[in-house]
Design a protein around this nucleic acid. Structure first.
Length: 429
RNA sequence: GUGACUGUAGCUCAGCUGGUAGAGCCCUGGACUGUGACUCCGGUGGUCGCGGGUUCGAACCCCGUCAGUCACCCCA
């Protein structure tokens, strides 16, 4: 029978890797806790309609990247390609939004059917925060600060740069898109196929084309800023002032356009050049119209999402994962001779009860002393407890050996094993 | 979705122009040694990603397919 393998772009995270992940998860949770955000969990599967109505019918994500299918009832469902839509749906459905302020965070797998490459997978993990019910630029600044705090904690602050832009209100963009669309149509023969396809359906996406010919043709194109309302501009400049006051550096990128339709006014991205082509580690912004668009009472909002794979990749390549995170156990028990299985299990039980915080592996499966000792060293444990007697003899003493360069060992009565362990591991009870 | 490269033991790889597969590491048994070592001897482990085709014969050629890597595209 052919061997089964994982689905393309869906990764197994093996024991050697999980410590890095746990490290990032712990940092993230510590940061959002400091800012008073509360965790929300919502399903991986939603009605396809939810994503169409929030992310946008003509976005790449909805058009060609969603995992959609009919379930047994004939309902069309999709694996979530991002978190915001589900978060809004859940929060609104349970009455968390109307006339309230909410600071929420979530974490979990997202799914997009893209061609996998470095930092881009079909199942990937996102962390995100969403803040509801706060209209001023102060919450925009706070959301950005949350992300900046995480970079600080992870030691990445020098490897990420913040880009921001003001994309105006939905109304502003509608007027601008019409003007841009007309401009592009006039210059259609200077564009490539991709740009021509989008010039009516989603003209703003043409702006960040990497094709030099297209960029050349865009010279003289209408500029979004000219279509943005005064109110929006005031909000944006206040945000910039706030960021400066808390010492967050940023660059303004007039071409920064988010790929999800629900964003408005201030949007931002954190990018790095240490990841190859997938430089965006975190992206977000305001989405004041989304709640109403999904059928709720109008509620302003802002948030971001970050890709955990990309963070872990960065941390690994930059050597920013502390070594201690992969430490698993403290003590390895070497058991020579099958007749000692009982006494070994009993001693291990007693030690685990007395020292619930330490990790102790009781060697199973037999094997000769030297091989067990090798495992003890490779396990990363600090101490080995050696159980060994002549056949037919009672086990009265055990040996505790330091697994460092000294290799020192002491022989002690089994009853005193716990005391000696506490001393060697500096455990105060 | 497009393109380039790749896919041989658990791991890293070799295998010349086609003749049914090797090395090192790992694991394991033993010898030696006051005992994670070194050295020596032995052992386990592969339907050569999968499926077709060409051939007397394919890991090596052809087609398809799956997966990996990177880039385009897109985004976290």
């Amino acid at each position: 029978m052919a061997k089964l393998q994982a689905i393309r772009g869906m990764n197994d995270i093996l024991p050697d890797q999980t410590p890095s992940w746990q490290y990032v998860e712990k940092c993230f949770q510590a940061v959002v806790h400091r800012y008073g955000y509360r965790e929300i969990r919502f399903p991986i599967l939603e009605q396809t309609q939810l994503f169409k109505r929030s992310i946008g019918e003509v976005t790449d994500i909805v058009e060609k990247e969603m995992y959609s299918f009919d379930d047994r009832n004939g309902d069309n469902l999709s694996l979530r390609p991002e978190g915001t839509a589900g978060c809004v749906r859940a929060a609104d459905q349970h009455g968390l939004l109307f006339n309230q302020q909410q600071r929420l965070w979530y974490q979990g797998p997202m799914f997009r059917h893209e061609r996998p490459q470095k930092g881009r997978y079909r199942q990937f993990q996102q962390f995100g925060v969403e803040a509801f019910g706060m209209a001023g630029p102060d919450i925009d600044a706070e959301v950005i600060q949350v992300s900046a705090s995480l970079w600080q904690d992870l030691g990445l602050e020098n490897f990420l740069t913040l880009e921001i832009n003001n994309i105006g209100s939905a109304e502003d963009r509608k007027r601008y898109a019409a003007a841009l669309s007309a401009f592009l149509a006039f210059h259609a023969d200077e564009l490539d196929d991709d740009a021509r396809n989008r010039m009516h359906s989603n003209p703003m996406r043409v702006l960040d084309s990497k094709n030099p010919a297209v960029q050349e043709a865009l010279k003289g194109a209408p500029v979004l800023v000219d279509y943005v309302s005064d109110e929006s501009i005031a909000h944006y400049s206040e945000l910039k002032s706030l960021l400066s006051q808390v010492g967050i550096e940023f660059t303004e990128s007039p071409r920064l356009v988010r790929g999800l339709d629900y964003y408005n006014n201030c949007v931002f991205e954190w990018t790095t050049d240490s990841l190859g082509a997938q430089g965006t580690v975190c992206g977000g912004g305001r989405y004041d119209g989304l709640v109403e668009q999904l059928g709720g009472k109008a509620t302003v909002a802002a948030g971001f999402a970050m890709g955990v794979e990309r963070l872990v990749l960065m941390l690994d390549s930059l050597g920013k994962i502390p070594e201690a995170t992969s430490k698993v156990i403290d003590v390895y028990m070497v058991v020579v001779g099958g007749q000692l299985a009982g006494p070994a299990a009993l001693l291990a039980k007693q030690l685990r009860q007395r020292f619930p915080e330490i990790g102790l592996i009781n060697h199973c499966g037999g094997g000769k002393y030297s091989n067990q000792m090798k495992r003890a060293f490779n396990s990363g444990a600090r101490l080995a407890i050696v159980l060994e007697t002549e056949p037919e003899q009672l086990l009265e003493t055990v040996k505790i050996r330091h697994l460092d360069d000294s290799g020192d060992s002491v022989s002690i009565e089994i009853a005193n094993c716990g005391d000696k362990l506490a001393e060697f591991l500096s455990i105060s009870e």
